[in-house]
Amino acid sequence: MSAANAPLISVKHPLPWQHYNLSTMGEEVRLWLDANLIEMIIAIAAGTLIYLALRVARRQLRRLKNRPGDEHSFATVIGRTFTRTTHLFMILVSARLVAGYADPPALLLTTIRFLFTVVAVFQVAIWVREFILALIERRTGENGHAETLSNAMGIIRILVTVALFAIATVVVLDNLGVNVTGLVAGLGIGGIAIGLAAQGIFSDLFAALSIIFDKPFRRGETIQYDQTIATVERIGLKSTRLRALTGEKKIISNTNLLQKEISSFQELDHRRIALPFGVIYQTPSEVLETLPALLEEIVNAHGGRFVRSGITAYGASSIDFECLFDVYEPDFAHVAKTRHRIAVEILKRFADEKIEFAYPTQTSFTAAPDGRMIYPYPDLDGAYVTSIKSD
């Protein structure tokens, strides 16, 4: 047979029991029972006690798993893992521990060892699978991400199960004397081909898992990416759905979203408000000096925390001021109301103090007949009269 037509699985050496026939096996069993009856009874009793002890231990671990108020502790993960122990595994553990005491025939001892190896490999796969899934749920459930986990748990369970049981199958076949080199190579090539074909899907899937474990945001949070501010409605396996402040629905792939700079407003305990305004140039310097203290009084009396205030620039028609203050409230609607109250109070106090807000103005000057700049209106004494000569 050519190398191209070689089977993926081949037997390296004959199995131990292939040397036996039924007559030989029956004779060995009869002679063993005649010579070791007492030892066999003791071994069965000891195996039964071991099995019962394993059942009691599993029952205690189940209580650890179901302990109220401690759903996300590491002890609960351990309890959940080992409660998946099967009865067949406990029976074979008991048989394997006492098999050598009664000096059984080689075929029986080989069979017990073989069955124990097969069942133990798959039992370890079940334990590891349950341990991984429990750790994932513990990791995501501690901080209220159970709703996000439900979207991805199905695919995670499938991926973990397929990977672990494929490894377990290869290990069992290898213990059976099967040459699994070709099988492993075939699985590797097939996995690479599937990975390349579904590269985009797997990229978004692993991005979704990254969102679940790293927790940059969660459902219900308001976030900003690029120029978009939106609330997260659902985190899927391929895309995340958001609701923009303007009402439209935004859908973006998980990979694309994680590549952006994301700002979250969820844990924002305060917002800083900048309130710019301008006063006229005719405002006395003494009043300008007292303005910061007046603004601080207004801000602190109406729910804000004053930061600073002062002149920022000399404008074309105003002396520009800025008032900075913090509002310690995450709800932006409350922040907007506080800003409104402070702005209205500033307007009232400025009116009481005869402080005038500036607005765009322009003053024109006219040249007298002798070339001097004069105000464009005749003075009261009649010294100058503006004449406009038209062509």
Results as ranks from 00 to 15, higher is better:
residue 3 A to G: 12
residue 6 A to W: 03
residue 13 H to S: 13
residue 13 H to C: 09
residue 14 P to W: 06
residue 20 Y to D: 08
residue 23 S to H: 09
residue 26 G to N: 14
residue 29 V to I: 15
residue 30 R to S: 13
residue 31 L to V: 11
residue 33 L to V: 11
residue 35 A to K: 15
residue 40 M to Y: 13
residue 41 I to V: 12
residue 43 A to S: 15
residue 47 G to M: 02
residue 51 Y to W: 15
residue 52 L to A: 12
residue 52 L to E: 12
residue 59 R to N: 10
residue 60 Q to M: 14
residue 61 L to V: 06
residue 64 L to H: 05
residue 66 N to H: 08
residue 67 R to T: 14
residue 68 P to N: 01
residue 68 P to I: 01
residue 70 D to I: 08
residue 73 S to C: 06
residue 74 F to M: 09
residue 74 F to S: 09
residue 74 F to R: 09
residue 75 A to H: 07
residue 80 R to C: 02
residue 81 T to W: 05
residue 83 T to F: 10
residue 84 R to M: 13
residue 87 H to L: 07
residue 88 L to W: 08
residue 90 M to L: 08
residue 96 R to W: 13
residue 99 A to C: 11
residue 101 Y to E: 02
residue 102 A to H: 10
residue 105 P to T: 06
residue 105 P to L: 09
residue 108 L to C: 02
residue 109 L to F: 13
residue 120 A to E: 11
residue 121 V to R: 01
residue 123 Q to S: 08
residue 125 A to P: 00
residue 125 A to G: 04
residue 130 E to Q: 08
residue 130 E to W: 05
residue 130 E to M: 10
residue 136 I to V: 13
residue 137 E to I: 03
residue 138 R to D: 02
residue 140 T to Y: 06
residue 143 N to Q: 14
residue 146 A to Y: 07
residue 150 S to W: 01
residue 158 I to K: 03
residue 164 L to K: 08
residue 168 A to E: 05
residue 171 V to F: 10
residue 173 L to S: 03
residue 182 G to E: 07
residue 188 G to W: 07
residue 188 G to M: 03
residue 189 I to F: 10
residue 191 G to Y: 13
residue 191 G to K: 00
residue 193 A to S: 12
residue 198 A to G: 01
residue 199 Q to K: 14
residue 200 G to L: 07
residue 202 F to H: 06
residue 204 D to I: 09
residue 205 L to G: 03
residue 206 F to R: 06
residue 209 L to C: 05
residue 211 I to Y: 05
residue 212 I to T: 03
residue 212 I to F: 13
residue 212 I to C: 11
residue 221 E to R: 05
residue 221 E to L: 05
residue 224 Q to L: 10
residue 225 Y to G: 06
residue 229 I to M: 01
residue 236 G to E: 00
residue 239 S to K: 09
residue 242 L to T: 02
residue 245 L to Y: 03
residue 245 L to H: 03
residue 247 G to L: 08
residue 247 G to Q: 09
residue 248 E to T: 06
residue 248 E to D: 14
residue 251 I to V: 15
residue 253 S to A: 12
residue 255 T to I: 03
residue 260 K to Q: 15
residue 263 S to M: 14
residue 266 Q to S: 14
residue 268 L to C: 11
residue 270 H to Q: 09
residue 277 F to D: 00
residue 279 V to A: 07
residue 281 Y to E: 00
residue 282 Q to R: 11
residue 284 P to T: 05
residue 286 E to K: 15
residue 292 P to V: 07
residue 296 E to S: 13
residue 299 V to T: 05
residue 299 V to Q: 05
residue 300 N to D: 15
residue 307 V to M: 02
residue 311 I to G: 01
residue 311 I to N: 02
residue 312 T to P: 00
residue 313 A to M: 13
residue 329 E to R: 00
residue 334 H to T: 15
residue 338 T to N: 06
residue 342 I to L: 12
residue 344 V to Y: 11
residue 351 A to E: 11
residue 355 I to D: 02
residue 358 A to E: 01
residue 359 Y to H: 13
residue 359 Y to P: 00
residue 361 T to C: 07
residue 364 S to R: 14
residue 364 S to P: 07
residue 365 F to S: 03
residue 368 A to K: 01
residue 371 G to I: 00
residue 376 P to W: 07
residue 378 P to N: 10
residue 378 P to V: 06
residue 380 L to F: 11
residue 383 A to K: 11
residue 388 I to M: 07
residue 388 I to R: 00
residue 389 K to L: 15
residue 391 D to M: 08
